[in-house]
Design a protein around this nucleic acid. Structure first.
Length: 296
DNA sequence: CCTTGAACCTGGGCGC
DNA sequence: TGCGCCCAGGTTCAAG
């Protein structure tokens, strides 16, 4: 479930191995994921030292010495894992922790790290993920990044900002928050979770959180706090379970999180004293989970 | 502008 | 054991 917290978790998991390592070779095991790889992808990145890893919205970026940047998006089912030491003695012996197998290992970054050889392997059964190349000095102008809204992790996301985005909009809050041009990195799960925390209905028109002067109503401030808290909690949870993952099987990826409404249709609402039941509705072709009793 | 629906792709779960 | 159907973290495009 690669929304922002998962990508952040992946970044933090990969960084100790990748930062400072020499990227000996990028092995592409097919010509495309969601899109074809750039023709010069392998040639451009091979033999370059990795400078640093970053994240923007749901994108992972890998800065290489010389100014080239690998942009990676995990789509719906992408994950990375690290293997260290020599190649597996028994090809095919590896079992992916999520039940997927090697046939979906599409990219292998062969590294020389300070503590020996390693491989960072990208696995993606559905192939909705993609990778691209950019130059660091023009990265912000790249089509993937140009129109992104504010990150929910910093101070730039505040009620005044959301008020400018929501003013006069009839769009339901669910759709408005999924729009990456408004808050970058939120996905289906955390939009549902944030709206529940804020006590706001996913069907409520976004503009109703802004007063006639264009100022944020109190509920919009509450929504901002809910978004920030949900994302911060998820990153914290991802970080802690990630450590266990590495120790257990060398993999990186998704953490288990106790959701309050997501995927809990028919179960009791967890708002103290509410007594409602979590419902599932469809908005814009996607499942929305919410409590009709306490989300107004 | 708005909205919905389909498309991309594979795999898991469920009912029969 | 298998088939058919529905569902899934995201994004983009077409159509109404």
């Amino acid at each position: 479930m690669p929304e922002l917290p998962e990508v952040e978790t992946v970044k933090r998991g990969l960084a100790p191995t990748m930062e400072g390592a020499l990227l000996l070779r990028a092995e592409l095991r097919r010509p495309d994921l969601r899109f074809p790889f750039p023709e010069n992808f392998a040639a451009t990145v091979s033999g370059r030292r990795i400078f640093s890893l970053s994240r923007r919205a749901k994108y992972l970026t890998i800065d290489l010495e010389g100014g080239d940047v690998i942009i990676a998006h995990l789509g719906m089912s992408g994950s990375f894992r690290i293997e260290t030491g020599a190649s597996p003695a028994i090809p095919g012996a590896f079992r992916h922790p999520h039940g997927k197998d090697e046939k979906h290992d599409h990219v292998i970054f062969h590294l020389e790290t300070g503590s020996g050889p390693a491989r960072v392997i990208y696995n993606d059964p559905r192939r909705f993920g993609f990778m691209d190349l950019a130059r660091r000095d023009t990265l912000a102008d790249h089509a993937f990044f140009r129109d992104l809204g504010e990150e929910p992790t910093g101070n730039a996301l505040d009620a005044a900002y959301l008020a400018t985005r929501f003013e006069d909009r009839a769009q339901p809050l669910k759709a408005a928050l999924l729009d990456q041009r408004t808050v970058a990195g939120l996905g289906n799960i955390y939009v549902c979770e944030a709206l529940w925390r804020a006590g706001l209905s996913p069907t409520r028109p976004a503009g109703t959180l802004v007063d006639s002067c264009g100022r944020a109503k109190a509920a919009l401030s509450g929504l901002v706090e809910a978004i920030r808290a949900v994302i911060a909690d998820a990153i914290a949870a991802g970080g802690s379970s990630l450590k266990d993952h590495i120790q257990a099987d060398g993999s990186l990826g998704y953490f288990q999180h106790a959701f309050s409404v997501y995927d809990r249709e028919g179960e009791a609402c967890r708002t103290p004293g509410c007594g409602g039941t979590v419902a599932r509705i469809t908005q814009a072709g996607r499942s929305t989970f919410h409590c009709p009793r306490c989300q107004k």
